[in-house]
Computed example of a mutant assay.
Amino acid sequence: MLNNFLASLPFMTETRADLVIGAFWPMVKAGFIVSVPLAVASFAIGMIIAVATALVRVMPEGGWLHRVALTATNFYISAIRGTPILVQVCIVFYGLPAVGIYIDPIPAAIIGFSVNIGAYASETIRAAILSVPKGQWEAGFSIGMTYMQTFRRIIMPQAFRVSVPPLSNEFIGLFKNTSLASVVTVTELFQTASQIANRSYDFLPIYIEAGLIYWCFCWVLFWVQAKLEKRLDRYVAK
């Protein structure tokens, strides 16, 4: 029945319908097994980088060690935001072997994505931290808290609520960018679609199907984002 329905659509034939039906599960499986874990792992590591980078940039000016760290983080953010993510991933996988560093495809993709998301998310987190009134910092210091205690107990919960929507959007963007891992031979969703299309020499229906599957994954992520924001709104209202 599904085959007949697909075959009745414009530009579709029975052969194309069979191809689309047969390609569906391999692409969905690759999405769940490779693309989603790749995005989650990269985002988690990227958030660690982002928080550390943001803290360096919002800390009050200190000694020479802080100035060195600040210069390094500014250079890092400028370099990453000024170059394509595809170039960054290729440098990790194809470039580092030139200096004797060999990394497997999936770890190389995670490193490239993590470094990229860390730079972009650090700006989001920095803006969220700066959005918290300075009086909150002063309140923490006045009761004897250290800088990090004040940040962890007072500033971070408030900044987290502000940063959730943009960080959620960045995660969704990262999930879509996992398709770039195909250039370093990671068999994720898009690479699976390309392999199927290359075998059949019929690219249009497979790539359209891949796009629809990405859309479905992102729709679920949009739904999770909306639920998370509503839950945080209720928590803040209390």
Rank of each mutant, 00 (worst) to 15 (best):
M145G: 07
T146L: 05
Y147T: 08
M148N: 02
Q149D: 12
Q149F: 05
T150D: 06
T150N: 12
F151V: 11
F151G: 00
R153V: 13
I155L: 10
M156T: 02
P157Y: 12
P157M: 09
Q158Y: 06
Q158F: 05
A159Y: 07
A159H: 08
F160S: 11
F160L: 14
F160A: 07
R161E: 11
R161A: 13
R161I: 11
V162L: 01
V162F: 05
V162N: 03
V162R: 01
V162Q: 02
S163I: 07
V164G: 04
V164N: 04
P165K: 12
P166L: 06
P166A: 10
N169C: 08
N169A: 11
E170G: 14
E170R: 13
E170N: 15
F171Y: 15
F171D: 14
G173M: 06
L174N: 10
F175Y: 14
F175K: 00
F175Q: 09
K176M: 11
K176R: 13
N177M: 04
N177K: 02
T178Q: 11
S179N: 04
S179P: 00
L180S: 06
A181L: 03
A181M: 02
A181R: 01
S182C: 09
T185E: 09
T187Q: 09
T187C: 00
E188L: 07
E188V: 08
E188A: 09
L189K: 05
L189E: 03
L189Y: 03
F190T: 15
Q191R: 14
T192P: 05
A193R: 01
S194L: 10
S194K: 12
Q195R: 13
I196F: 03
I196G: 04
I196Q: 02
I196P: 03
A197W: 04
N198F: 10
S200G: 07
S200Y: 05
Y201G: 00
Y201Q: 03
Y201M: 08
D202G: 02
D202V: 13
D202A: 08
D202R: 13
F203R: 06
F203P: 04
L204F: 14
L204H: 01
L204W: 12
I206E: 01
Y207S: 02
Y207L: 14
I208C: 04
I208H: 01
E209D: 05
E209M: 15
E209N: 06
L212R: 10
L212Q: 06
L212V: 14
W215L: 15
C216V: 15
C216P: 00
F217Q: 05
C218K: 12
C218L: 14
C218D: 14
W219H: 08
V220P: 00
